[in-house]
Amino acid sequence: MRPRRYFRLIMLLAGASVSAQLEYRVNFLVNVASSILASGGALFGLSILFSDGQRVGGWTYREAIVVVGLFTLVEGFIATFLQPNLSRVSEAVRTGTMDFTLLKPIDSQFLVSAREVNIFRLSDILIGLGLMLWAVITLHSATPWGVALGIVLILAGLVIVYAIWFILTTTAFWFVNIENLTELFHGLFGAGQFPVTAFPGWTRIVFSFVVPVAFITTVPAEAFIGRADPARAVGAAAIALFLFFVARWFWKFAVRSYTSASS
C-alpha cells in the first residue's frame, strides 16, 4: 500500500475529508522544511569535508557546491515526477489494475510515467537550482558555451535517472513481491552529492560505469564551472540515449510477456 496514493485519494475526496485544508498547509510546511534541512545538511557535511582548506578530488568547496546543487535538483526530480508515478506500478501489477492501463489507447509507458506530479517537492528543484546558480555565478569561471552544454547535460542526467528508475520498476512484472528495488539505486545515488573524483580506487569506476552517478551530477557540474571534458560530455549523452532505449525495449518486452502470460 503506497501512502502517497492514499494521500492523493484524500486530496480528491477533500470535500468529505475533515482535515484536507489543514493537510495542504502541513504538507507544504513539511516539504519546505525537508528541502531546506536536506540541502543545509549536505552543505554542512561538505564544509566538514573541506574544513582543512584542501581540494577534494581536485575540486574546491565552492565548486563542489555546484555538484550538491545538481544532486538536490535531481532528488527533487525523483520526488516530484518519478516516485509518485512509478511506485504504483508494482502494486498495479500485483492487484491486476495494470490491465486497465494497458487497455487505454495511449502509450502505456507514458501513462504509467506521467500520471501524477507531487508539486510540493518542487521546492527541492528550486533550491537545487538556486544553489547551483549561486555557486556558478560567484565562481566567475562559467562560459556561455559551458552553461549551454551544462543544461543539455542536466537533461541527459535526468534521462539517465528516469531510465534506470524505470528499468528497476519494470522488474515488477516478474518480481511481484519486491516493491522497493528502486530504493537500491536511490541509496547508491547518495554518492552523487560528491564529485566522482572524491572516491578512491575502484569505487570511482563503480560510480561511473556500474551505477552511472558520475554522469548525472559530476559531468554537468564540470560544464557549468568551465571545465567540460568533451569525451565525458559525449559519453553522458550516449549513456542517456542508450539507457532510454533499453528502458523502452524492456518495458515493451515486459508488457508483451505479461499479456501473453495472463489469461
Partner: peptide, 8 residues
C-alpha cells in the same frame, strides 16, 4: 559512501 569519500 561516506566511508569511501573519507578514505579517499
Amino acid at each position: 559512501i561516506m566511508m569511501a569519500v573519507w578514505i579517499g
